[in-house]
Structures are given as C-alpha cells and as structure tokens.
Design a binder for these strands. Structure first.
Lengths: 214, 214
DNA sequence: GTCTATAGCTGGATAGAC
DNA sequence: GTCTATCCAGCTATAGAC
C-alpha cells in the first residue's frame, strides 16, 4: 500500500511544519524589531532552535524574506478575492478598500515589505510578485464596475488608498484618525471619476439605486 | 581688536565646515546604500577621514541621523515658506503642493527619514521636529484660504499628497506617472471640500475672486 | 536534522600616541 | 583633531560530529 509516498508525505508535512514555525517566528520578529532588524540568531532563539538549523530550511536570510514576501502577496490576493457580500458595484468597491486597509494596518511590517521597497539589498523574486499583480487586477475590475476605467484613475485610486494607509500607520498607529476618512475618500474619488453619471436613466447604473447618502 | 572671539569664529567655522562635509557624505551614503545602511566606517572613507574622527563631531551614529533629520525638516520648512508667485488662493495651494512633491521625490532617503518613521531604534529629538509642524501649519493656512478649514480635510489632503509621492517613489522612481496626477488630484479634492462655494456671493470668498478655472 | 564550534567579517565605540 | 590599534558585540554562513 504505497508506503513510500506516504512516508514522503510525512516528511514533507514535518518539513513544512518546521518552515511554518520559522516563518511565524520571523513575522513576530519583524513586527517587534522592525523589518530590517531581523537576525537569524534572534529568529532561531525565538523558534527554539539554533541558527544553523535554519539553513536546513532556507538557503539564506534573503530566502526567508522572499518566502515572507510570497506569503504576504498570496494572503493579500486571497483576501481580496474572497466573495463579496454585496452585488452593488459601489458597495463592492468599498468592501475591497476596507479589506485592503485592514490587511495593511493589521501588520505594518508586512505592508512595508510588500508595498514599500525599503529593504537594502532585497528584491522579491518575480514569481513572488505575481499574486500582487492579480490583486491589482481585481481592483481594476471593481473600479470598472463603477464606471471608472481610465488607467490614470486606477493610479489615482491606489495613491489615495496608499496615502490613507501610510498616514494611519506613520502618524496614528493603533488609532483610526485616517481610517475614518475612507468612506469620504471614496465619495470624493467617485464624484470626480464618474461625474456625468445619472442626469438621465441610461447606462451603467445597474446596481446603484439605493442609499444615495447625500 | 577682539582677537579671541575672532579666533573662536575661525574655529567654529572650521568645525562647522567639517560637520558639513560629514553630513554631505552621509546624505550621499544613504541615497546610495539605503537609509538604514549607513555605516560610520563607510561614511568616514567617503569623507576622507577615519571612523573615530567622526566622534569628534558627532556623539553617536544616531546623533548623525538626528542632525540629518533636523536639516531635512529645516530645509522643508524653508522651502515651503518661500514667497509664492501668485496671490490666488488656489494657485498658491497648487504651488505649495508642487514644492512638497518636488522636495520629497528629490531625495527619497530624506523623505523616508522625515515622513516615514522606519529607522529601527531612532526617534528624532523634539526640537528637530518643530520645523515640520510649522510647515504643516502653512499647509493648513493655504487650505483655509481656499475655504477648506475642517481638520479632517487637512488629514485627507496630507493623505492624498503622501499617497501620490509614495506611489511615485515606490513604483516609478525617476518617472512622472503619479506626478502627472497632481493637478487632477487638487481638482478632485477641492471639488469635494468646497462643493457649495459660489451659489450666492456671501461669505468665505475673501481671496477667491479671480481665475476660477471651471 | 540538529547540534557545537567556529570561521570570517563588519558594526559602533573607545584608548592613547602624536 | 586626527590618527593607529583595539575591544567587543553582532552578524551570516559553514564544517563536522552525532
């Protein structure tokens, strides 16, 4: 009964479990000591092993960073791709923004690693970057459903969201000073990008018929 | 004829000149190797002295960072406070934004040091921080002249600008992809924050009586 | 796979001659 | 003030016993 592949699975499971523990420790470490402050000795101590053992699971320190980057990008893409509660284009857009912001402020070091390239000497591998591109495509789609299709408006949107997140993390960590501006920011953005929407009842308003706050 | 104070001036001039050279080298270093990558040995080599000599001018590595922070904040405040070409409130606001963005993208490491607190274990001294607060007050004043006085709108404005700068630096360094969105961003922002401006000629329009583009 | 031991290097900071 | 010499701590990474 297929003993060898089973044994292989055990080994791989154990191996993945150990990698998992190291990565978890790495996330804890960078959140406590800063992204650039990660050290293999400290990481090993945190996980309960010795530094050389880490090399049984990762080729180098940058390999750990790359694994963290890939994990962050994948998690980000998955979370953004989960089913949305509403079918209304604007509500979906808002939900996406809230997910993005929650993802970013939930882990400042992860945000720094994924979106601000600030690590000296580290570049993520190309494959690690793919999920982030996929997620951006999702944002493009949600904007398009709101009638916003210009490429520069996608750029403007990302800048707006990034700015809110950045100010929140930098100047009010743990608070909500800029988080409270999210809805208003979306109002402002859509009012600008879809200015000629509903003078007559014609197109594009399939799902925009309730609420209408203000 | 006051020989002693003159001599003192000489000494101080020489001393300041040496400090200046070290700081210039430090700026070059962080722009080439990253803000966190500054090392005293490399800095000394760059300046043409030895590492211990640096301690004749700065107490520690963090003292260098603090001097850089203070210099950045002062330069920023000075540049924002220079006379503005126009007297039109909106044009002044735009000019301020352009100065801010130019200041930020002109030196990415300086932007990182001044506006994103990402250096592990470094906190700027309180006095170093004063000029940045003064500059923010200037922004508040320029916004007020455009009729935007709500505190949360100042926060929204800073988030918008920070986002543009951040995206530009992170995703298109040396380019202008997000810089081209500045004017449109201001349009969007003002359209949102001063929506009920001129239905009747009544209040709040003290300095807003020419131009009126759109 | 995990350990001890250690190589090899670089970092910040200090001592003391000149 | 500037140097040489040095201390001490930290780092990544490797060698080799078990």
């Amino acid at each position: 009964m297929l003993k060898i592949p089973q044994s292989t699975d055990w080994r791989e499971a154990r191996r993945n479990s150990a990698r998992r523990a190291i990565l978890d420790g790495a996330w804890d470490a960078v959140n406590e000591e800063g992204l650039a402050g990660l050290s293999l000795r400290g990481l090993a101590r945190r996980v309960g092993i010795t530094a050389p053992t880490i090399y049984a699971y990762f080729d180098s320190k940058n390999a750990i960073y790359d694994a963290m980057f890939a994990e962050a990008a994948t998690t980000f893409a998955e979370r953004m791709a989960e089913p949305y509660d509403s079918k209304d284009a604007r509500e979906v857009l808002t939900e996406g923004v809230n997910r993005f912001v929650a993802f970013c402020i939930g882990n400042a070091a992860r945000y720094q690693l994924l979106f601000q390239r600030t690590l000296p000497g580290f570049e993520p591998s190309a494959e690690s970057y793919v999920p982030a591109v996929v997620a951006l495509e999702g944002t493009r789609g949600r904007l398009a459903r709101c009638g916003v299709t210009a490429a520069r408006h996608l750029d403007l949107f990302t800048a707006l969201l990034t700015g809110l997140v950045d100010q929140q993390i930098s100047n009010d960590p743990g608070g909500d000073r800029w988080l409270l501006l999210i809805d208003e920011s979306i109002d402002m953005f859509l009012a600008h990008c879809q200015p000629t929407l509903p003078p007559t009842e014609n197109h594009q308003r399939t799902t925009l018929t309730r609420g209408e706050q203000s």
